[in-house]
């Protein structure tokens, strides 16, 4: 018996190279192939983009190569304060979203739980409002709020109010009655039921609404900035398009795509870290709907959250400073800040 065991073990106790091979090489290759599968297609696409520019397969003025577009990102960062434009765009989305949340969530709770009869009556009107194109409301909002930031933020708020309201209202109407009964039988007061049962049951739905709202806001933001703005990524694109600087369109496009992917990932991390208790899935038309099932640690969620908040605060501070500078620049005719 003993001898057989030693016999069996003997190949493993041999020289270190085969062990290394079994321990490292195969998993390493596997990891490499997984990485290649994950990033391969994108890299090939970027490679072809770069190569077609280098080899003059397509007109450089229409499709500048990847490296040219990336260098234009750097150029814009140095010369027209790209960071401030990104923050201006992001700030509009976030303020619109906050307004949307502040309006939609209490409304959904009041109508969904306290006044279900009124909710049934108002439903048709609100659905019609949800169908109204926010972009045609732009002229109306301009009449209401004047030019400047407010109509843009109003459009974004309008876009994000409806998905948040409808998903929150549906969810808080459909809270599991068993849970409510259990809470009541434990002699919970109305507030305790609200904070311990209704709210946690609704938060995932609110979050889904937020994800849709962010997506729609990003779509509409670029368009809104194209029509009347003096800052933001949409303005850069519009300006570049009007002055035939195609490179800048691509550079700003890269920023928009990266920003969109990052925000999508950020929201997914938050969902997986803090909301994995719920069985509610992400909306099926969003990418990554199946990744919801894999919870991650709350620490990771907090790290992402803190990094996000710090970046936002820093960015908004910079925008604030730049606005004050601009104000000075317009008061004293010194336009150095414009063409540095």
């Amino acid at each position: 018996m003993k001898s057989a065991q030693t016999l069996n073990l003997s190949p493993n106790l041999g020289p270190s190279k085969p062990i290394l091979k079994t321990f490292w090489v195969k998993p390493f290759l596997e990891r490499l192939s997984a990485l290649a599968r994950k990033y391969g297609l994108l890299l090939i696409f970027l490679f072809i983009w770069e190569l077609s520019g280098r080899a003059n397969l397509v007109d450089q003025t229409i499709v500048p190569s990847l490296s040219t577009s990336l260098s234009s990102v750097v150029e814009m960062w140095n010369h027209i304060h790209l960071g401030l434009h990104i923050m201006a765009s992001l700030g509009r989305v976030i303020i619109g979203l906050i307004i949307g949340l502040v309006v939609a969530v209490p409304l959904a709770f009041i109508l969904g739980r306290l006044l279900p009869n009124v909710a049934a009556k108002v439903d048709a009107l609100l659905r019609v409002f949800g169908l109204i194109n926010p972009y045609c409301l732009f002229p109306v909002f301009v009449i209401f709020f004047g030019l400047g930031e407010t109509p843009k933020i109003a459009v974004l708020a309008w876009v994000s109010v409806w998905p948040i309201y409808f998903s929150a209202q549906t969810a808080c109407r459909n809270v599991d009655p068993q849970l409510l009964k259990t809470a009541r039988s434990m002699n919970c007061g109305a507030w305790a039921i609200f904070f311990r049962v209704t709210l946690p049951a609704t938060i995932p739905a609110i979050f889904n609404g937020v994800r849709i709202g962010v997506e729609m806001s990003f779509f509409i933001l670029i368009a809104a900035e194209m029509t009347g703005a003096t800052a933001g990524l949409g303005w850069i694109v519009h300006n570049a398009g009007a002055s035939y600087q195609t490179v800048r369109i691509y550079g700003a496009g890269i920023c928009v795509v990266l920003l969109g992917v990052l925000i999508n990932r950020f929201l997914l991390v938050i969902k997986r870290a803090f909301l994995s208790f719920s069985e509610a899935l992400s909306p099926s038309w969003l990418q990554n709907a199946k990744a919801d099932h894999k919870p991650i640690s709350k620490t990771t969620g907090y790290v992402w959250l803190i990094v996000f908040v710090v970046l936002m605060v820093f960015g908004f501070y910079q925008v604030f400073k730049a606005e004050n500078l601009l104000l000075d620049a317009t008061l004293t005719p010194d336009y150095r800040i414009w063409n540095k």
Binding site: K38, M226, V256, G260, Q287
Partner: peptide, 22 residues
């Protein structure tokens, strides 16, 4: 799935209005 997940995510973020200019 693995191969197409990331490219689809990136492409889905390309804003239609950016595309319009191009």
């Amino acid at each position: 799935n693995d191969v197409l997940e990331l490219p689809l995510e990136v492409f889905s973020q390309i804003n239609p209005f950016l595309l319009f200019h191009i």
